[in-house]
């Protein structure tokens, strides 16, 4: 039975639950917007990293360089789309 539950997986699972709980502080306490976003950003990124490295085994693949480039490129385009859209449609727009 024990060999079906490898320790890294169990620790990973516990950490992801814990990180979700930590993220809750942003609604339980009266934080500034910047502080709240930072906490959410950090907890979400760490969780994503957990999934990626621990559960999706990204670094065991013989093409891991390609995989990292792929994810990096996707994040580049994704973030450009999100922040570029906000910049063009809202922030930059209101600046006059």
């Amino acid at each position: 039975m024990k060999r079906l539950f490898p320790v890294p997986h169990v620790i990973g699972f516990a950490s992801s639950l814990l990180l979700s709980l930590i993220a809750l502080v942003v609604i339980k306490f009266d934080l500034t917007f910047a502080m709240g976003m930072t906490i959410l950003g950090v907890t979400a990124l760490v969780q994503a990293g957990l999934q990626l490295f621990l559960f999706m085994h990204v670094s065991e693949n013989e093409d891991k360089k390609t995989l990292f480039t792929n994810i990096g490129y996707a994040l580049f385009v994704g973030l450009v789309t999100i922040f570029g859209t906000l910049f063009a449609m809202m922030w930059g727009y209101n600046m006059g």
């Binding site: 385009v77 727009y93 209101n94």
Partner: peptide, 25 residues
């Protein structure tokens, strides 16, 4: 390929966004 994702707003400069947006793009 990288820059091609950074220029799209030049298709609608005249939308009326601020100077900053148009300058960047």
């Amino acid at each position: 390929s990288l820059l091609s994702f950074l220029v799209w707003v030049h298709h609608f400069y005249t939308m009326g966004h601020g100077v900053m947006v148009n300058s960047v793009f």
